[in-house]
Write a protein that binds this DNA or RNA. Structure first.
Lengths: 140, 140
DNA sequence: CCCGATAATGGCACTCGTTGTCGATGCCGT
DNA sequence: ACGGCATCGACAACGAGTGCCATTATCGGG
């Protein structure tokens, strides 16, 4: 286990390319959310020859394959992060952007129950909590 | 009477203009989220002479004054809605787009509790449940 | 009631994130 | 090794949203 390269080869219909490995590898390293442009910039900085378009497409492919999480920042840009095994949601500070991961069986069950009640199946859901963190409240 | 054109007059430093009243009025009518462009389009359709820029600015002003809610759609566009007393979420069919409004004190409390636990204040949250409705499951 | 200061309007150009295009390139099964 | 075809990537296009600024409308004062 050691390194990494790891979690991408499983996707069928996708070819293993240097670029795809680079993006996946970087996401393995970085635990938090990064925008497509930041990822592109970082890869170039490291000497990986990769185009911005490819980064966008790779991220989309990874997101479609449920390998990464996507969320939208306040300005509408997309941010990506390696999906962790256990499903969780985010608590984000609307001032400094600090993000805390939170879990909640309660919500999961609630979502399931509500959806089933209305005859819906194949449920997935999005939950995001926005607030102002202690630090920013003290400062601001 | 009744319809009261408005909940906007109270804001100081802002002039009462026909355009501002039109946007506020339309938001009063529509209970659900609409994009700035949709709002602009609808107003033009009704013969209100109003510019897109003005719609954007008016919506921003209303949001700043906490008169309306803002959220980002999956594509990153902003959607606006009149702040309603009773807060609810959406259950959306990912096949036909059918939407059901759902309420859930459970989630509200959970979000509040989790946020407070992490020292966050001025909480707001977004919850969206996606699934396939009974009709689409039968058909597809 | 009219006038002037000034906030608001709105057309247009522009930014910027993201997506489409399409010829070149590299992966992979045979 | 070969060839088909997915992928790559430079560039152009697209679309939401914003800045600019001359014009217009609102509102307070005379």
């Amino acid at each position: 286990m050691t390194t990494s390269s790891s979690r991408t080869p499983s996707v069928p219909g996708l070819r293993a390319t240097r670029q795809r490995a680079a993006v996946a590898g970087l996401l393995d390293e970085l635990a938090d959310f990064r925008s497509a442009q930041e990822i592109h910039e970082e890869l170039r900085r490291r000497g990986e020859g990769i185009g911005l378009t490819t980064v966008y497409r790779t991220l989309q492919a990874l997101a479609d394959a449920d390998e990464i999480d996507v969320l939208r920042t306040g300005t509408g840009e997309a941010s990506y992060r390696r999906c962790s095994e256990h499903h969780h949601h985010h608590l984000v500070c609307r001032v400094c952007g600090k993000t805390v991961e939170v879990e909640g069986p309660a919500v999961e069950h609630w979502a399931d129950r509500v959806a089933t009640l209305h005859g819906f199946a194949e449920i997935s859901h999005t939950v995001e909590i926005l607030g102002v963190c202690a630090g920013c409240r003290a400062t601001g």
